[in-house]
């Protein structure tokens, strides 16, 4: 042994201990670092019952062969029936096409008396210079009521689908809530704001002009309402949701639509029951060409315009922010 150290000193060094550990004489960790034995997995009775119950339900749901077979059979049946239904529908419609009058015949129903009646008697009956407005708001006012209701229902459906729940953002700070609507967009563009300050009243006044002249000139509730909605959208775009929500919220929208639609309903009901065609309604028609003339057409136009304007704005706000 060519050690420099004596035997006793060598026993104190780490190399000796290393050697002993390496040969397996003594493990230095054997009594110092020890893993405690694992406790056996115990389950109280309730937990076990719950687990078994869950597994049972899962098995029932996944491997419910009988029910699944029913579903598969129903699907096959459904496809079969739908193909038969569509084929039958196509056959019926094609059969009906053969009954249509030939094109270019002078006695066709599209040249019948209805159009001539509208053109000849329209102004005397409704008092509106614009025959189209007289048609859609007097002769066929129920149709227009349906259209306005469709707009309202569409807004309701979009509201159901897209609205963000208020409860989700209760823990946001005030700053975040402020930026919430336009988090990623440039804010407060001063040039746009200054010009919107001039242009928004101009646009809205023009929309009001189109609505009020609906029975005199082309236009009416739908186009005028769309213009007012565009003005509101421009205002929203320039000044942000915070400014707009001071005067236009969901509540305002609901009330405007409710009042406009119910007024339309009541007025038209009165007109239908009490003055269908040749009966006396008590509503003066006025001289054709004046702004206040044509009986019920002007207020009905205003109702339709309000509904359309609010709907335009509500759609835009909902698709941008998810609520307004």
């Amino acid at each position: 042994m060519s050690r420099l150290l004596s035997e006793e000193e060598y026993r104190k060094t780490k190399a000796y201990r290393m050697k002993r550990w390496y040969h397996g004489d003594k493990d230095p960790y054997i009594s110092k670092v020890e893993m405690k034995p694992q406790k056996p997995f115990k389950e109280d009775v309730e937990l076990q019952r719950k687990r078994l119950h869950d597994e049972l339900i899962l098995n029932q749901r996944i491997y419910d062969v009988e029910h699944n077979n029913k579903i598969l059979a129903f699907r096959k049946f459904y496809r079969f029936i739908s193909v038969i239904f569509v084929a039958a529908l196509m056959a019926i419609l094609l059969y009906m096409v053969s009954y249509l009058p030939p094109t270019g015949d002078a006695t066709n129903p599209d040249n019948n008396e209805v159009a001539a009646k509208y053109i000849e008697d329209g102004m005397a009956d409704t008092g509106a210079v614009n025959i189209v407005t007289g048609m859609i708001l007097d002769y066929r006012a129920f149709d227009t009521l349906g259209e306005s209701n469709v707009l309202f229902i569409a807004t309701c459906a979009v509201l159901i689908l897209l609205r963000l729940d208020k409860n989700e953002k209760t823990d946001t700070t005030k700053e975040e809530e402020e930026e919430n609507d336009r988090l990623y967009e440039p804010k407060n563009d001063i040039i746009l704001q200054k010009v919107a300050f001039f242009l928004v009243p101009l646009i809205i006044i023009f929309g009001i002009y189109v609505i009020l002249n609906g029975h005199i000139s082309p236009g009416g509730g739908f186009s005028g309402g769309a213009i007012i909605g565009a003005g509101l959208i421009l205002y929203l775009n320039a000044f942000g949701f915070q400014k707009t929500e001071r005067f236009f919220t969901q509540k305002t929208y609901k009330w405007i639509c409710f009042v406009a639609l119910s007024f339309y309903c009541l007025a038209k009901t009165y007109s239908f029951y009490c003055g269908a065609h040749h009966l006396e309604t008590g509503i003066p028609l006025g001289t054709p060409g004046d702004i206040i003339s044509a009986g019920l057409i002007l207020p009905l136009n205003i109702c339709v315009g309000l509904v359309v304007a609010c709907t335009m704005y509500a759609f835009y706000a909902m698709f941008r922010k998810g609520g307004f």
């Binding site: 990623y184 967009e185 565009a230 003005g231 421009l234």
Partner: peptide, 22 residues
């Protein structure tokens, strides 16, 4: 109406695209 809608479209498109890009 065309002038209004065209102006509105330009401003809206520019703003929305800026937001989307950011």
């Amino acid at each position: 109406i065309y002038a209004m809608i065209s102006f509105l479209a330009v401003t809206l498109l520019a703003k929305v695209y800026m937001g989307v890009y950011a």
